[in-house]
C-alpha cells in the first residue's frame, strides 16, 4: 500500500517535471520579454554598488581641464544604443554642468553613428545650459577611413573635417576654429561596443597626463588596457552607466536599465538552474531525458 502510494507520488512528480521540460520555448521568450518590460514600467530601484572602474572614470574626467575641450567619439551601433545612449547623455551632462567643457563629437565606426550622436544630443538640454550649436558643441558625424582617418584626425584635423553631420561647412563652425589635432583637446571620451574602435583610439588618441582617455565599453574589452592606456571606464555590459549616474548625482534612465539587466539576468539564472534540476529529477525517476 505504502509502496504503491510512493510510486504514485513519484509518477506525479515525474509528470510535473516532464511537462515543465516539454514547455514550448516561446513561453520562455515571452516570459523573458515580460522581465524586461516590468522594470521599464515599474522601476525596482535595486541597490547599485559602484566599481573602481567607474570611480576612476569620474576621477579622470575631474582631472581634465575645467572649461576645456572634450573629444567625444560615439561608436556603438544601433543595437548598443540601449546602454550606450544613457551613458553618453549622462557623461555629456556631467562635462557641461561640472566641467563647463565644449563638446566635439566625431564617430569612426559606421555611418549610423552620426545619427546615434544626434539621438544623444537630443537628450541633452543644451539651451538650459546656455550652449549654442557650432559654438559650444558640434556633431561631426561619421568619418570614413578607419584607423587612417583616426590618425588623420589626430594630426591633420582640418583636412579631414570638411563639414558637420548637419551639413554646415567647417568654416561656419566657430568651435572648430582653433582645432588642428588631438593635442587641442583636454579629454577623450569614447563609447563603443567594438574592441577594434577602442584599440584605434588607444593607438591614435592616447591618454596623456593632460588629456585623459576614458571609455564606455564592455569590461572585457577595456580591462587589458586599464589602468594605463585607459584611465577609467563605464562597463556598458553591466551596471556601469547606472553607477556613474549614482556617483555623479545625475538623474537619468541608466538606473532603470540596470534594473532591467538585473531582473532579466536573475530570470535567466533561475531558468538555467531549473533546467538542470528538472533534468536530474526526471533522470533519477526514470523518465525520458
Amino acid at each position: 500500500m505504502v509502496e504503491a502510494k510512493a510510486k504514485e507520488e513519484k509518477g506525479i512528480v515525474l509528470r510535473i517535471f516532464e511537462a515543465y521540460r516539454g514547455l514550448n520555448q516561446n513561453v520562455w521568450y515571452v516570459l523573458f520579454l515580460a522581465m524586461v518590460i516590468i522594470p521599464m514600467v515599474y522601476p525596482l530601484a535595486l541597490p547599485i554598488g559602484i566599481s573602481q572602474y567607474t570611480r576612476d572614470f569620474k576621477a579622470a574626467i575631474d582631472r581634465s581641464k575645467d572649461g576645456g575641450r572634450a573629444l567625444i567619439s560615439i561608436n556603438y551601433c544601433t543595437g548598443g544604443e540601449g546602454p550606450g545612449l544613457p551613458a553618453m547623455v549622462d557623461t555629456i551632462k556631467y562635462l557641461v554642468t561640472r566641467k563647463q567643457m565644449t563638446i566635439v563629437n566625431v564617430g569612426i565606426l559606421m555611418p549610423v553613428v552620426g545619427q546615434l550622436a544626434e539621438n544623444v544630443f537630443a537628450k541633452v538640454p543644451w539651451d538650459s545650459y546656455g550652449y549654442v550649436y557650432g559654438v559650444d558643441y558640434v556633431n561631426l558625424g561619421f568619418i570614413i577611413g578607419q584607423e587612417a582617418a583616426v590618425a588623420a584626425i589626430a594630426t591633420d584635423f582640418k583636412t579631414v573635417i570638411k563639414q558637420d553631420y548637419r551639413g554646415n561647412p567647417a568654416s561656419a563652425l566657430p568651435i572648430l576654429d582653433d582645432i588642428y589635432g588631438i593635442d587641442d583637446f583636454d579629454l577623450v571620451v569614447e563609447g563603443t561596443d567594438y574592441s577594434g574602435q577602442l584599440h584605434m583610439v588607444i593607438r591614435q588618441w592616447p591618454s596623456t597626463p593632460d588629456r585623459p582617455l576614458v571609455t564606455h565599453v564592455f569590461a572585457g574589452t577595456a580591462l587589458p588596457f586599464y589602468p594605463g592606456s585607459v584611465d577609467g571606464f563605464v562597463d556598458t555590459a553591466g551596471a556601469g552607466p547606472a553607477e556613474f549616474e549614482v556617483l555623479a548625482g545625475i538623474p537619468g534612465t541608466a538606473v532603470i536599465n540596470s534594473d532591467v539587466i538585473s531582473l532579466s539576468q536573475l530570470f535567466l539564472l533561475i531558468v538555467v538552474l531549473m533546467a538542470n534540476i528538472s533534468y536530474w529529477i526526471v533522470r533519477s525517476l526514470g523518465g525520458k531525458t
Binding site: M40, G80, G82, P83, G220
Partner: peptide, 20 residues
C-alpha cells in the same frame, strides 16, 4: 563565462532600446 553574460546584457540592452 564572463563573456557570456556580457553578450546577454548587450542583447538585453538592444531589446530594451527597441521597447523604449
Amino acid at each position: 563565462g564572463i563573456f557570456l553574460p556580457t553578450h546577454q546584457n548587450w542583447n538585453i540592452g538592444a531589446m530594451q532600446q527597441m521597447l523604449q
